[in-house]
Design a protein around this nucleic acid. Structure first.
Lengths: 198, 198
DNA sequence: CTTAGATCGAACCGATCGGTACGATCCCTG
DNA sequence: CAGGGATCGTACCGATCGGTTCGATCTAAG
């Protein structure tokens, strides 16, 4: 889908349009799976414009990953907020949201994790680390509100479930991955917040 | 570490040596992070030899991933076998083995999952899918021996924990990731094999 | 209407890529 | 000792890569 033309020449708007159009292409093809020339042709923009706004292919990639991380965590945060006050329901909402993501035909796993597997670039790894930290904050908050004895540890366990479910969903498209992950997460939540058995 | 020279000229041995020497280099640098020329220089073999044995860079990559998947699952299978008959101990042994992997300085996540994130090549994706199936068989077996009501579902949940722990360990090197994953896995195991609460 | 900046399209650059070819060397086999 | 296959080192190939440059075109602002 080419960048909209004919609209007002507004550099900020052009930059945003390039970002939005390039995101699914690089996600589908892989960061090194498409050259700048073909990418520009696909999104309907000249190389000069792309380089003026992002300086470098890596610069574009980093901008895409930053935006995607914020959009994704914002999306999950809204799902949690819409689930009411019960930590159980909030956690279930996270995996229900993930399920909708996994079902999309274009789903190819977490873009940040994929990018870190491709480039060993420090900037990309930093973006991925921040992304996981955002997830961790969200999950640790749920764990804390549930009264877990060690919310940080439970949060990390839930983070592993989220990332693991994403990996499995990207490679085994058949079964109800998010539903199984949700069941596991709720089991961990209730086990961590229940009073110690005698 | 260059391929050992001076030894008997044995094509099968040369092939195995190339495979072994190239594995850590491609794992560290990424599949597209090093060219064939530099790779050959690093492992001390000529391009002609490499291409005669593997035909293509992709052929080498696939051979490496096949061998690595078998070695890795064999390693975990042995750890399980050495842990005795109790499913609880067998599952704990899996994560203890993972812990030793995560602690290695060269650890960079699962090579098969990383490769699938880089190439969208169907052959590579098939190898990764088989790799996850091997893990799943191992974990489902433990779940079945523990008397889980649905060993397949529990096995998939444990698989998500394994893969998620690997992702988290690759990006957050500080904390005791495998230990936390182990605790979560044992919680899921006991919850799934315990008689239903009244 | 004029002007300055944003964009386009295409040519162009040096570097690197995966893969091939070839003569020289080495080692095992007969 | 003679021959054949495995290996080496190097040169080479066409293609593609990320990135730059430039004149033409367009648009918004003065």
């Amino acid at each position: 889908m080419p960048v909209a033309k004919g609209s007002t020449i507004d550099p900020a708007r052009t930059r945003a349009a390039v970002l939005e159009a390039a995101t699914p292409v690089l996600y589908e093809r892989g960061l090194d799976g498409i050259g700048v020339a073909e990418l520009c042709a696909r999104i309907g923009v000249s190389k000069e414009t792309l380089y003026r706004h992002f300086g470098t292919k890596d610069g574009l990639v980093q901008a895409i990953l930053e935006a995607r991380s914020e959009r994704l965590t914002g999306w999950l945060t809204e799902a949690v907020a819409a689930a009411g006050d019960a930590p159980h329901d909030q956690l279930a909402a996270v995996f229900d949201a993930l399920q909708r993501w996994y079902e999309r035909p274009a789903f190819r796993g977490c873009a940040m994790v994929n990018a870190s597997a491709q480039h060993h670039d420090d900037a990309v790894r930093a973006i991925t680390a921040r992304h996981l930290d955002r997830y961790l904050d969200l999950l640790t908050g749920i764990a804390a509100r549930a009264g877990a004895a060690d919310p940080g540890a439970l949060g990390r366990q839930l983070l592993m479930l989220v990332e693991g479910a994403t990996i499995v969903a990207a490679h085994h498209r058949t079964a109800d991955t998010a539903g199984q992950a949700r069941h596991a997460a709720l089991t961990l939540l209730s086990a961590a917040s229940a009073p110690d058995p005698p």
